[in-house]
Design a binder for these strands. Structure first.
Lengths: 130, 130
DNA sequence: ATTTATGCAAATCATTTGCACATAG
DNA sequence: CTATGTGCAAATGATTTGCATAAAT
Protein backbone atom coordinates (compact mmCIF):
# COMPACT_ATOMS: atom_id res chain seq x y z
CA UNK A 1 0.00 0.00 0.00
CA UNK A 2 2.56 2.55 -1.11
CA UNK A 3 0.69 5.68 -1.96
CA UNK A 4 1.52 7.33 -5.24
CA UNK A 5 1.69 10.97 -5.98
CA UNK A 6 -0.65 11.35 -8.91
CA UNK A 7 -1.59 14.56 -10.59
CA UNK A 8 -5.23 13.92 -9.73
CA UNK A 9 -4.51 13.48 -6.04
CA UNK A 10 -2.54 16.70 -5.95
CA UNK A 11 -5.33 18.57 -7.67
CA UNK A 12 -7.91 17.26 -5.20
CA UNK A 13 -5.74 18.27 -2.22
CA UNK A 14 -5.17 21.72 -3.70
CA UNK A 15 -8.87 22.22 -4.32
CA UNK A 16 -9.75 21.39 -0.71
CA UNK A 17 -7.18 23.94 0.42
CA UNK A 18 -8.37 26.61 -1.99
CA UNK A 19 -12.07 26.21 -1.27
CA UNK A 20 -13.94 26.79 1.97
CA UNK A 21 -15.39 23.56 3.38
CA UNK A 22 -16.24 22.24 -0.09
CA UNK A 23 -18.46 19.29 -0.82
CA UNK A 24 -17.16 16.48 -3.05
CA UNK A 25 -19.22 17.96 -5.87
CA UNK A 26 -17.56 21.36 -5.44
CA UNK A 27 -14.12 19.77 -5.38
CA UNK A 28 -15.00 17.89 -8.54
CA UNK A 29 -16.12 21.09 -10.26
CA UNK A 30 -12.93 22.91 -9.28
CA UNK A 31 -10.64 20.08 -10.27
CA UNK A 32 -12.43 19.59 -13.57
CA UNK A 33 -11.34 23.07 -14.61
CA UNK A 34 -7.69 21.97 -14.41
CA UNK A 35 -8.24 18.45 -15.74
CA UNK A 36 -11.46 18.10 -17.64
CA UNK A 37 -11.10 14.32 -17.92
CA UNK A 38 -10.96 13.56 -14.22
CA UNK A 39 -13.60 11.11 -13.06
CA UNK A 40 -15.89 11.80 -10.15
CA UNK A 41 -14.95 8.45 -8.58
CA UNK A 42 -11.31 9.53 -8.55
CA UNK A 43 -12.26 12.66 -6.64
CA UNK A 44 -14.22 10.63 -4.09
CA UNK A 45 -11.45 8.07 -3.74
CA UNK A 46 -8.84 10.74 -3.18
CA UNK A 47 -10.95 12.69 -0.71
CA UNK A 48 -11.34 9.51 1.33
CA UNK A 49 -7.68 8.69 1.07
CA UNK A 50 -6.45 12.15 2.03
CA UNK A 51 -8.87 12.22 4.96
CA UNK A 52 -7.73 8.78 6.17
CA UNK A 53 -4.13 9.92 6.02
CA UNK A 54 -4.98 13.03 7.99
CA UNK A 55 -3.97 15.40 5.22
CA UNK A 56 -7.42 16.96 5.10
CA UNK A 57 -10.35 16.99 7.49
CA UNK A 58 -13.84 15.65 6.93
CA UNK A 59 -16.95 17.36 8.21
CA UNK A 60 -20.11 15.29 8.63
CA UNK A 61 -22.94 17.79 8.88
CA UNK A 62 -26.23 16.84 10.49
CA UNK A 63 -27.78 17.53 7.12
CA UNK A 64 -26.43 17.53 3.60
CA UNK A 65 -23.46 15.97 1.87
CA UNK A 66 -20.08 15.51 3.49
CA UNK A 67 -17.65 18.38 3.33
CA UNK A 68 -13.91 18.57 3.43
CA UNK A 69 -11.69 20.86 5.38
CA UNK A 70 -8.13 22.12 4.97
CA UNK A 71 -7.90 22.32 8.76
CA UNK A 72 -7.10 19.07 10.48
CA UNK A 73 -6.97 20.33 14.06
CA UNK A 74 -9.97 19.79 16.33
CA UNK A 75 -12.58 22.50 15.93
CA UNK A 76 -16.32 22.89 15.69
CA UNK A 77 -18.55 24.13 12.90
CA UNK A 78 -21.57 26.27 12.27
CA UNK A 79 -23.94 25.14 9.50
CA UNK A 80 -26.37 27.41 7.71
CA UNK A 81 -29.74 25.66 7.58
CA UNK A 82 -30.68 27.63 4.46
CA UNK A 83 -27.71 27.26 2.12
CA UNK A 84 -25.92 24.38 3.84
CA UNK A 85 -22.56 26.14 3.97
CA UNK A 86 -20.17 25.30 6.78
CA UNK A 87 -18.21 27.84 8.80
CA UNK A 88 -15.59 27.41 11.49
CA UNK A 89 -17.02 28.07 14.93
CA UNK A 90 -15.14 30.70 16.93
CA UNK A 91 -14.81 28.48 19.94
CA UNK A 92 -11.90 26.63 21.47
CA UNK A 93 -12.48 22.86 21.58
CA UNK A 94 -13.62 21.63 24.98
CA UNK A 95 -10.62 20.25 26.77
CA UNK A 96 -12.31 17.29 28.32
CA UNK A 97 -15.98 17.14 27.38
CA UNK A 98 -16.26 13.66 28.83
CA UNK A 99 -16.17 15.26 32.26
CA UNK A 100 -19.51 16.82 31.41
CA UNK A 101 -21.02 13.37 31.06
CA UNK A 102 -22.53 11.38 33.87
CA UNK A 103 -22.48 7.59 33.95
CA UNK A 104 -22.45 6.46 30.33
CA UNK A 105 -23.38 2.91 31.28
CA UNK A 106 -20.23 1.45 29.78
CA UNK A 107 -20.20 3.49 26.58
CA UNK A 108 -16.57 4.34 25.78
CA UNK A 109 -16.47 7.91 24.55
CA UNK A 110 -13.59 8.54 22.17
CA UNK A 111 -14.54 11.76 20.47
CA UNK A 112 -17.23 14.39 20.24
CA UNK A 113 -18.49 17.02 17.86
CA UNK A 114 -20.47 20.17 18.27
CA UNK A 115 -22.46 21.63 15.42
CA UNK A 116 -24.08 25.03 15.66
CA UNK A 117 -27.02 25.52 13.31
CA UNK A 118 -28.47 28.79 12.16
CA UNK A 119 -28.38 31.31 9.37
CA UNK A 120 -25.27 32.67 7.73
CA UNK A 121 -25.09 36.45 7.16
CA UNK A 122 -26.21 36.16 3.53
CA UNK A 123 -29.19 33.92 4.20
CA UNK A 124 -30.22 35.90 7.27
CA UNK A 125 -30.33 39.05 5.16
CA UNK A 126 -32.67 37.34 2.70
CA UNK A 127 -35.14 36.46 5.45
CA UNK A 128 -35.40 40.09 6.54
CA UNK A 129 -35.73 41.45 3.01
CA UNK A 130 -39.48 40.79 2.89
CA UNK B 1 -53.87 20.72 5.83
CA UNK B 2 -55.97 18.93 8.39
CA UNK B 3 -54.03 15.92 9.50
CA UNK B 4 -55.90 12.63 9.60
CA UNK B 5 -55.53 9.91 12.10
CA UNK B 6 -54.73 6.91 9.98
CA UNK B 7 -53.95 3.45 11.23
CA UNK B 8 -50.57 3.65 9.50
CA UNK B 9 -49.63 6.90 11.22
CA UNK B 10 -50.52 5.46 14.59
CA UNK B 11 -48.44 2.37 13.94
CA UNK B 12 -45.42 4.45 12.96
CA UNK B 13 -45.72 6.60 16.08
CA UNK B 14 -46.09 3.53 18.28
CA UNK B 15 -43.05 1.88 16.71
CA UNK B 16 -40.86 4.94 17.37
CA UNK B 17 -41.98 4.84 20.99
CA UNK B 18 -41.42 1.12 21.35
CA UNK B 19 -37.99 1.05 19.74
CA UNK B 20 -34.79 2.73 20.84
CA UNK B 21 -33.67 5.43 18.40
CA UNK B 22 -34.79 3.37 15.40
CA UNK B 23 -33.90 4.08 11.79
CA UNK B 24 -36.66 4.39 9.20
CA UNK B 25 -35.82 0.88 8.09
CA UNK B 26 -36.27 -0.46 11.61
CA UNK B 27 -39.58 1.35 11.98
CA UNK B 28 -40.67 -0.13 8.67
CA UNK B 29 -39.73 -3.63 9.80
CA UNK B 30 -41.62 -3.26 13.08
CA UNK B 31 -44.71 -1.75 11.49
CA UNK B 32 -44.75 -4.38 8.76
CA UNK B 33 -45.35 -7.01 11.40
CA UNK B 34 -48.66 -5.37 12.31
CA UNK B 35 -49.61 -4.36 8.77
CA UNK B 36 -47.77 -6.36 6.16
CA UNK B 37 -49.10 -4.18 3.32
CA UNK B 38 -47.73 -0.87 4.53
CA UNK B 39 -45.50 0.88 2.03
CA UNK B 40 -42.06 2.14 2.88
CA UNK B 41 -42.95 5.56 1.49
CA UNK B 42 -45.81 5.78 3.96
CA UNK B 43 -43.41 5.12 6.80
CA UNK B 44 -41.04 7.83 5.58
CA UNK B 45 -43.88 10.31 5.04
CA UNK B 46 -45.25 9.71 8.51
CA UNK B 47 -41.87 9.92 10.19
CA UNK B 48 -41.34 13.30 8.56
CA UNK B 49 -44.81 14.46 9.46
CA UNK B 50 -44.62 13.38 13.09
CA UNK B 51 -41.21 15.01 13.42
CA UNK B 52 -42.45 18.28 11.88
CA UNK B 53 -45.34 18.33 14.30
CA UNK B 54 -43.01 17.74 17.20
CA UNK B 55 -44.58 14.43 18.15
CA UNK B 56 -41.30 12.59 17.74
CA UNK B 57 -37.69 13.68 17.57
CA UNK B 58 -35.25 13.25 14.73
CA UNK B 59 -31.58 12.47 15.24
CA UNK B 60 -29.16 13.31 12.43
CA UNK B 61 -26.02 11.32 13.20
CA UNK B 62 -22.69 12.36 11.78
CA UNK B 63 -22.68 9.02 10.02
CA UNK B 64 -25.43 6.66 8.97
CA UNK B 65 -29.13 6.97 8.30
CA UNK B 66 -31.44 9.27 10.22
CA UNK B 67 -32.93 7.98 13.42
CA UNK B 68 -36.08 8.81 15.29
CA UNK B 69 -36.59 9.43 18.94
CA UNK B 70 -39.54 9.19 21.30
CA UNK B 71 -38.01 12.02 23.32
CA UNK B 72 -38.69 15.48 22.01
CA UNK B 73 -36.88 17.47 24.70
CA UNK B 74 -33.41 18.83 24.01
CA UNK B 75 -30.72 16.28 24.73
CA UNK B 76 -27.50 14.99 23.24
CA UNK B 77 -26.53 11.60 21.88
CA UNK B 78 -23.70 9.11 21.88
CA UNK B 79 -23.16 7.12 18.67
CA UNK B 80 -21.36 3.82 18.47
CA UNK B 81 -18.90 3.98 15.59
CA UNK B 82 -19.04 0.19 15.20
CA UNK B 83 -22.74 -0.66 15.15
CA UNK B 84 -24.18 2.80 14.55
CA UNK B 85 -26.62 2.62 17.47
CA UNK B 86 -27.61 5.84 19.20
CA UNK B 87 -27.82 6.31 22.97
CA UNK B 88 -28.97 9.24 25.05
CA UNK B 89 -26.03 11.12 26.52
CA UNK B 90 -26.16 11.50 30.31
CA UNK B 91 -25.60 15.23 30.16
CA UNK B 92 -27.86 18.21 30.76
CA UNK B 93 -28.17 20.41 27.67
CA UNK B 94 -25.97 23.48 27.80
CA UNK B 95 -28.07 26.38 28.96
CA UNK B 96 -26.60 28.98 26.66
CA UNK B 97 -23.93 27.48 24.44
CA UNK B 98 -23.85 30.62 22.32
CA UNK B 99 -21.99 32.28 25.17
CA UNK B 100 -19.15 29.90 24.47
CA UNK B 101 -18.79 31.36 21.00
CA UNK B 102 -16.70 34.35 20.09
CA UNK B 103 -17.59 36.69 17.27
CA UNK B 104 -19.51 34.61 14.74
CA UNK B 105 -19.10 37.26 12.07
CA UNK B 106 -22.83 37.73 11.66
CA UNK B 107 -23.80 34.08 11.74
CA UNK B 108 -27.11 33.80 13.64
CA UNK B 109 -26.90 30.72 15.83
CA UNK B 110 -30.31 29.19 16.50
CA UNK B 111 -29.50 25.74 17.73
CA UNK B 112 -26.67 23.37 18.44
CA UNK B 113 -26.03 19.68 18.79
CA UNK B 114 -23.40 17.63 20.50
CA UNK B 115 -22.61 14.11 19.40
CA UNK B 116 -20.31 11.85 21.39
CA UNK B 117 -18.73 9.10 19.35
CA UNK B 118 -17.21 5.90 20.66
CA UNK B 119 -17.97 2.28 21.34
CA UNK B 120 -21.09 0.94 23.01
CA UNK B 121 -20.61 -1.72 25.71
CA UNK B 122 -21.36 -4.58 23.31
CA UNK B 123 -18.99 -3.43 20.58
CA UNK B 124 -16.27 -2.52 23.07
CA UNK B 125 -16.41 -6.05 24.43
CA UNK B 126 -15.87 -7.45 20.94
CA UNK B 127 -12.70 -5.39 20.44
CA UNK B 128 -11.15 -6.82 23.62
CA UNK B 129 -12.15 -10.40 22.87
CA UNK B 130 -9.11 -10.99 20.66
C1' DA C 1 -68.23 14.83 -1.18
C1' DT C 2 -63.69 16.42 -0.60
C1' DT C 3 -59.40 16.35 0.89
C1' DT C 4 -55.78 13.92 2.80
C1' DA C 5 -53.27 9.62 2.80
C1' DT C 6 -51.72 5.20 0.84
C1' DG C 7 -49.12 1.78 -2.02
C1' DC C 8 -46.44 1.12 -5.69
C1' DA C 9 -42.82 2.02 -8.80
C1' DA C 10 -39.80 5.12 -10.60
C1' DA C 11 -36.74 9.03 -9.64
C1' DT C 12 -33.18 11.33 -7.08
C1' DC C 13 -28.89 12.24 -4.68
C1' DA C 14 -24.55 11.12 -2.67
C1' DT C 15 -21.33 7.76 -2.72
C1' DT C 16 -19.04 3.29 -3.82
C1' DT C 17 -17.59 -0.56 -6.67
C1' DG C 18 -16.02 -3.61 -10.68
C1' DC C 19 -13.25 -3.74 -14.31
C1' DA C 20 -10.09 -2.99 -18.15
C1' DC C 21 -6.59 0.24 -19.03
C1' DA C 22 -2.91 3.65 -17.61
C1' DT C 23 1.11 5.08 -15.02
C1' DA C 24 4.19 6.15 -10.95
C1' DG C 25 7.91 4.21 -8.62
C1' DC D 1 7.93 -4.63 -14.23
C1' DT D 2 4.12 -4.52 -11.00
C1' DA D 3 1.38 -2.50 -7.68
C1' DT D 4 -1.39 1.39 -7.31
C1' DG D 5 -4.45 4.55 -9.45
C1' DT D 6 -7.75 6.11 -13.09
C1' DG D 7 -12.09 6.67 -15.92
C1' DC D 8 -16.22 4.95 -16.92
C1' DA D 9 -20.54 2.92 -16.09
C1' DA D 10 -23.21 0.36 -13.23
C1' DA D 11 -24.51 -0.61 -8.39
C1' DT D 12 -25.80 0.82 -3.86
C1' DG D 13 -28.48 2.82 -0.05
C1' DA D 14 -31.38 6.20 1.87
C1' DT D 15 -34.98 8.98 0.87
C1' DT D 16 -38.44 11.41 -2.05
C1' DT D 17 -41.88 11.89 -5.68
C1' DG D 18 -45.75 11.09 -9.18
C1' DC D 19 -49.82 9.06 -9.74
C1' DA D 20 -54.01 6.42 -9.52
C1' DT D 21 -56.64 4.55 -5.79
C1' DA D 22 -58.42 4.34 -0.93
C1' DA D 23 -60.29 6.07 3.19
C1' DA D 24 -60.99 9.86 6.99
C1' DT D 25 -63.55 13.59 7.96
Amino acid sequence: MNRRNTKQRQLVAEAVRALDHPSAEEVYAAVSRADSCIGKATVYRNLNLLAEQGEIGRVCPGEGAERYDCRTDKHYHMRCRACGKIFDAPMAPLFSPVQLLGDTGGFMVEDHNIEFVGLCPGCYKKTTED
